[in-house]
Nucleic acid binder design. Sequence first.
DNA 1: ATGACCTGTTTAACAGGA
Length: 260
Amino acid sequence: MKIATWNINGIKARLPNLERWLIEASPDIACLQEIKSVDENFPSELFEEMGYNVAVHGQKSFNGVAILSKKPLDEVIKGLPGDEEDDQARYLEAVISTDNGALRVASIYLPNGNPVDSPKYPYKLDWMARLKAHAETLLAYEEPLVLAGDYNIIPTDLDVYDASKWVEDALFLPQSRAAYHEILNLGLTSAFEACHNQPHSYTFWDYQRGSWQKDHGIRIDHLLLSPQATDRLISCSIDRPTRGWEKPSDHVPVTIELDV
DNA sequence: ATGACCTGTTTAACAGGA
């Protein structure tokens, strides 16, 4: 089973590319971020015609996450638990039936956090603390679990073209990376790192400054797996060519194959 | 030497992204 994550940066602008990619890559489950749409304007029927079940957690203009799944969605949870006041649509979780039992998948759009001296940075750290608490709850189920998404975290200096340019950035500050590693240290495995030791394998290139042409990228999209999912991990790949398509997202898909 | 973009919305400049 192929499970992918992709920050599409707007469903309306990305629909042609998303359709093409769904046909060519044919993921069984696609976790999408930054749909930038309310639920009613998300083209769910189109994806249903392509054979997907659809769960959407959208909001107007910004953020928004979705899950497309060829297998039925048994249970859907919208929003990250832990703060009733938080109205940003950044977390969607679903339990999916497979031939070998239940698989739990989340589509995550972790806050960017810049600028660091604004309330956005404490919001990021608070959100990560909530994600850690929730991940702890989910890990206790001892089932295959995939927490996939745009984490807005550069894990190490080998995941950026020039670390010195990012030391003050919310994606790379020691405190941000420490919060990310706290989540990993609960017992999760980063799929890409389990499959590869190739440094400078990026998933995002800025639209500005010719970043794509110069390969000035960062690796910020991750799939974190529970032990039960890690046991079944076959491969992980970054779909780099999509960044070179017409009207690309600034992120590319990351896909894992699980033996489930 | 430096900067160079894209998206959605309020359709004309913004806000937000990373």
